[in-house]
């Protein structure tokens, strides 16, 4: 597996990681190496977690995430990248790579709505989330406070916002946003675990 050049390895605490996202994306699209560093640093974890959630091992997930960033960088250098919506684009790239790797390994993947299981031992939650679970989650969210629902929507929506971004947008502290995420997560997890026990 190819590794990222040292210059674009994810480095925690890169100063430019706090720059506005749009500015970073624009700079990265122009080929700015520091901007790429910051974007990888900011979003790599989400790409790895997305792959883990699809049943890949941590080692494999990290390798594929690196490969995905490499592909994006190559596309940018070839002038094929017109916009950079992260982390969605990197996750999509990584998902394709994981499917490709699984095909080469002769594994069968059940890909539905992004929920495939590359692992021979399927995890209960890695199966497609059903309508009943969705309805249950929806009713749980309906009981949450409006600010909790807003935070949940922003954190897990397609915008790829960090907790700091969400905190700024809703006017809460980062600590409070994290607390809300943990509380809502706990509620939903209990509901899902309950259903898993009945499956």
């Amino acid at each position: 597996m190819a590794t990222l050049p040292l210059a674009i390895r994810p480095i925690a605490g890169v100063p430019s990681a706090n720059e506005p996202k749009a500015d970073l994306a624009e700079r990265a699209l122009r080929g700015d190496q520091a901007a790429w560093n910051a974007l990888v640093s900011r979003h790599n974890q989400r790409v790895v977690v997305a792959l883990l959630g699809r049943g890949l091992s941590l080692e494999k997930a990290k390798d594929i995430a690196q490969e995905a960033w490499m592909r994006l960088l190559e596309q940018q250098r070839a002038g094929k990248l017109r916009e950079l919506k992260l982390p969605a684009l990197a996750i999509t790239q990584a998902t394709f790579l994981s499917l490709d790797a699984a095909r080469k390994d002769g594994r069968t993947l059940a890909l539905a709505e992004g929920y495939d299981c590359a692992d021979p031992q399927p995890l209960p939650l890695s199966r497609l989330i059903g309508e009943e679970q969705l309805a249950r989650a929806e009713s749980i969210l309906a009981k949450c406070s409006p600010s909790a629902r807003q935070v949940f929507g922003l954190v897990y929506g397609g915008g790829g916002l960090s907790h700091a971004d969400v905190a700024e947008r809703v006017g809460l502290s980062v600590q409070r946003v994290r607390q809300i995420v943990c509380e809502v997560r706990k509620e939903l997890r209990e509901a899902f675990d309950e259903e898993d026990r009945h499956v």
Binding site: R54, L188, R189
Partner: peptide
Amino acid sequence: QREAALELAFTRVAAHV
């Protein structure tokens, strides 16, 4: 992996909502 799968499930929930 299970925690990560839960994270993916929440993404789906957010999209559904």
